[in-house]
Design a protein around this nucleic acid. Structure first.
Lengths: 336, 336
DNA sequence: GTGCACTATGTGAGCGCTAACACTACCCGA
DNA sequence: TCGGGTAGTGTTAGCGCTCACATAGTGCAC
């Protein structure tokens, strides 16, 4: 099938040069006469020549592909990150190959990475938001450029992450500033670093104001679990402010409060995290924390490219992206 | 950098056979003695040998990679589709390379496809929900396996699509069955086939009941546009039933209705489309239409693999996946 | 002019693999 | 007994490209 397109030698013949000169033009080498360069380009255009990435990958040992390992690319955060990563990579001339995994356990991660290595990817980005992923990463070959996103801050692996702690602190402080005596927290799954960071920031903000944190409510990112937690919180008259670990949890909480007749923000204020596009259209519009996924993508790709170019695998760089608070209508002072 | 791993010859040497025998074992060829096969496998395991995909792609002219072209992989539909596609492809031993594009115009699509072709992908899946994408596809080389998802039903290109018409008809009929005199529709962007199909289904259901369709409200998939349309609909006392082209539009509509004091479903019933995970936690829980993304992914991959194996590029197959209605609390009979 | 740096281009090898074919046993029926 | 299949394996030739090196041409100091 597939009539093989023209190869470099065909271009060379048409342009009246050697294949090597064509290669030089393609790779932007100096020491090619302007006139020759033009002739080669013309031949490329005329033949519709397209360089064969596989051949290049074979000889250089690296393809212009970046492998991404992620778990649930349907969630808003991972999906945004993936899209941003792809966009940024494309600008740098890299393609992105996705290897999604069902679980972020040792075996799954290793298998996904192996698959990427078989294709000789130039580097790998692992979106590894849970504890179990960390172990796998340390056992990986050290000679392949690797960056983790939202991974374990404790591990000696290059890491780019949203500053969960700062974001959560800002959210909590925002509620305290509005006059609330304390802030309740509906968290994400306990094994996610994102959750842990948000819990930590929430706790820190309260402690900094001399407030003893109230009991933590555990959710799992889903609106369903937010709803369940919301049903409990709605029945507690002393609750006036809730910070949820993401917007979907907030949605569930909002509905539970609505059902119990607790008005937001008149009776209870709510702050979310993520700023999903719909957050502005919740009832009421949700005040939330917006992580900058583009910045995360740019930073991780930059880190990866540095490794690729310098030929280093696995330094221990670290970069943190500060999120910003987006104030909407779901926060108001408490009524006494 | 990257210490090159062992090659096939290394395995061959260790196993005491020729590299060709190793190749045969790897590719599951017959005519290899069981004992030899075992010896080779042992050598592979001992060396941690991993076949070089680039070399294979070079010689066969096709890599074990499927390219996907999509626009906005942050939207729930495309994201789900992409994830499902990746999952299914992995099961078949294929990797998925994403090439997202900003616009679905001729040039962008072609460029993305070109990028995939440069990597000699085995096949391409284009998620091409708008008119302008169609043109680009017809001009593509005919010798590369290609499947479009949610594309133009009119074009002679293999296509897998959700049955938008049937879904919309079911949604509309569901509202009529509840006793509503007519159903208003907030549509998606007019250049999307998904929109067109949903409009068609809505119209067909009304006409089948002898109802003259009311004016169409144009949205753009976003909650923001749903909100704007909702503000108009909320002020029209005769409106008792609304079908929105997706759940996010419904969310915007719900908020607008809420602000105007129109209760859902007591005063107005609403039905969405997509069944995003949060739909069950809208206020009230949203009745909606659920497309089966997994089925779409499976069907398109199957179609692609058939082409790849048979060496045919571009037949004109067509497959339609029926969506299902998910009834929740946002629909009730009208009050007289 | 000779030597030498420097630019512009060509030549040859080989990356790791598969496809085509060659070769060696061995078994079988005539 | 011998021709001819067939299972199991080896040999060779590239796929299209980059890298290292070889070669020609140019400018310039001595």
């Amino acid at each position: 099938m597939a009539v093989h397109g023209p190869a470099m030698t065909d271009v060379a013949r048409l342009a009246g040069v050697s294949h090597q000169t064509v290669s030089r033009v393609l790779n932007g080498h100096p020491n090619v006469r302007e006139q020759t360069r033009l002739r080669v380009r013309a031949a490329i255009a005329e033949l519709g020549y397209r360089p064969n990435g596989a051949a290049r990958a074979l000889v250089t040992g690296r393809s212009q592909v970046i492998g991404v390992v992620a778990q649930n690319t349907t969630l808003y955060g991972p999906a945004s990150l993936l899209a941003a990563l792809e966009q940024t990579a494309a600008e740098e001339g890299f393609a992105v190959s996705v290897g999604s995994v069902r679980n972020l356990d040792h075996r799954s991660i290793s298998a996904a990475v192996e698959r990427h290595l078989a294709h000789r990817v130039a580097g790998i980005v692992v979106i590894a938001p849970v504890e179990s992923a960390g172990e796998a990463l340390e056992l990986l070959p050290k000679d392949v450029p690797l960056v983790t996103v939202d991974g374990d801050p404790q591990r000696p692996v290059p890491l780019v992450t949203v500053d969960q702690v700062a974001g959560a602190r800002a959210a909590t402080q925002h509620l305290l500033d509005a006059g609330h005596r304390t802030v309740w927290h509906v968290s994400g799954p306990s094994d996610w670093f994102d959750s842990a960071g948000r819990i930590e920031g929430w706790r820190a903000a309260l402690l900094a104001s001399g407030i003893d944190p109230p009991p933590l409510m555990h959710g799992d990112w889903s609106a369903a679990s937010g709803y369940r937690c919301g049903q409990m919180l709605a029945r507690m008259p002393e609750v006036t402010a809730i910070f949820t670990a993401n917007d979907h949890l907030a949605l569930g909480v909002l509905r539970a409060l609505h059902e119990f007749g607790r008005r937001v923000p008149a009776d209870i204020s709510v702050v979310g995290f993520d700023d999903v596009p719909e957050a502005a259209y919740f009832i009421p519009p949700l005040t939330t924390v917006r992580p900058d996924f583009d910045a995360v993508a740019r930073a991780s790709l930059q880190m990866l490219l540095t490794q690729i170019e310098s030929g280093i695998g696995g330094g221990a760089l670290r970069q943190t992206i500060a999120p910003s608070l987006v104030a909407r209508d779901s926060v108001a002072p408490p009524r006494h």
